[in-house]
Simulated assay, not measured.
Amino acid sequence: MTNQTASSRPTHRIYAVTKNGSKKIWRSIGALWPHSDGKGFSHKLDCLPLNGAEIVIREIDAEAEEGAR
């Protein structure tokens, strides 16, 4: 089975979110791409959180990404 993505660039980032007191710490752990048929997603994880972190998927803000470089 092959899953073709609509784009070579990911559309979403995957984060592991943990709490340190009242502060939330967001760590990027991967990316997500929609399938070209619109019926699913492919994802790539760079690491897996083992500390009970919440996994959050957020749409990439292109302007914020450019400013971070």
Results as ranks from 00 to 15, higher is better:
G52C: 10
I60V: 12
A6C: 04
G30E: 02
A68W: 08
K24L: 07
K24S: 14
R9Q: 10
W26F: 01
W26P: 00
H35R: 07
L32Q: 12
K44T: 09
I25N: 11
D37A: 01
K19Y: 05
A6N: 04
K44I: 05
W33C: 01
E66S: 12
S36K: 15
E66M: 15
Q4F: 12
G52N: 12
I29R: 04
D46W: 13
R13E: 13
A6F: 04
G40A: 06
G40W: 02
M1F: 08
I25S: 06
I60A: 08
S7E: 02
R13L: 10
S36H: 13
G67P: 06
S8R: 02
T18A: 04
S28T: 10
W33E: 04
R58F: 05
C47Q: 13
H43V: 03
L50G: 15
N51Y: 05
K39Y: 11
V17F: 02
L48H: 13
L45D: 06
D61Y: 08
A31I: 00
S42K: 12
D61C: 07
Q4N: 15
R69D: 13
P49L: 09
A16N: 01
A68Q: 11
G21C: 08
T2Y: 09
A31P: 01
L48W: 14
D37Y: 06
V56W: 07
K39M: 13
I57C: 13
W26H: 04
E65V: 09
W33G: 02
E54G: 04
T18K: 06
R69N: 12
K44D: 08
T18I: 04
V56L: 12
I60H: 05
L45S: 00
T5Y: 09
C47E: 15
A53N: 08
T2H: 10
V17P: 01
D37N: 11
T2I: 11
T5K: 08
E65C: 05
K24I: 00
I57V: 15
K24T: 07
L45P: 02
A68N: 10
S8M: 01
A31L: 08
S42I: 05
G30Y: 01
W26N: 01
H35F: 03
S28G: 11
G21A: 07
E63A: 15
D61T: 08
R69E: 14
L32T: 05
T18C: 00
E65P: 03
D61N: 15
F41C: 06
N51E: 13
K19D: 10
I57M: 13
S36E: 15
K39L: 14
I57P: 07
S8N: 01
A31Y: 07
I14S: 04
R58L: 14
L50Q: 13
K44G: 06
P34M: 05
G52F: 08
H12L: 01
G52M: 13
A16E: 03
G38D: 13
R9M: 04
S8I: 04
G40D: 07
R13K: 14
D61P: 05
I29K: 03
I57S: 14
A68M: 09
A6W: 04
E59Q: 15
Y15Q: 00
S28Y: 00
H43W: 11
K44H: 09
T2K: 14
K39F: 13
L48P: 00
K24F: 00
M1Q: 11
K39A: 09
